[in-house]
Amino acid sequence: MAKAKVKKVFLDSLGKQNPVFAQVLGICSTLAVTNVLKNTLVMTMGVVFVTALSNFTVSLMRKVIPSRVRMMVETLIIASYVIIVEIALKAFVPDIWRQLGPYVGLIITNCIIMGRAEAFALSNPAGISLVDGLASGIGYAYVLLIIAFFRELMGSGTIWGYQVMGSWWTNWSIMVMPPGAFFMLAVFIWIVKGLLLTHEEKKS
């Protein structure tokens, strides 16, 4: 596969075509755990793993899947990988699994995974699909990690569980509560979109 194509797929997913701020997709399942950085990292790693491998598998099977049951097969593939993630968490990091509870299962309904399988894997060979899945997952992960970073910092005064803000800092409790996630995501999208818009204006 051409190196240039791999590079393009990667850059698109991290930048202009980023699933979160360009398409606002798939935030449901993970947004809930973005008030703690550690949980977010584990969840997004799960998403990267599932997106990459389900993309790869769907692409391998793309020529034999009957169109009538296409969605069902895709869902089945995704669900299987998510179960594998859950089993792995349960066996190797039980403490984190206990924290995340039902949210791991919700990776299945993350629209990005289904979206990439439909939009990319069904019409592209396996190798590049794997790269695409990986890139979309990472593009998704870094946005949520940034959000989690600020939510934890402002909401609890900690990063990765360590106290970083001094005693002068008053925690913004709203940041760790549900509305905080909406506001934080909106501000993030605002900043990125604003930057992209000014960038485009300069160009033209």
Binding site: F21, P178, F182, F183, A186, I189, W190, I191, K193, L197
Partner: peptide, 21 residues
């Protein structure tokens, strides 16, 4: 302009979440 579409919707959702709290 940067807030058009998704951005403003998210902010309103946040306020609704506050109200429901």
């Amino acid at each position: 302009r940067g807030l058009e579409g998704a951005g403003i919707t998210l902010i309103i959702t946040g306020m609704m979440a506050l109200a429901f709290m």
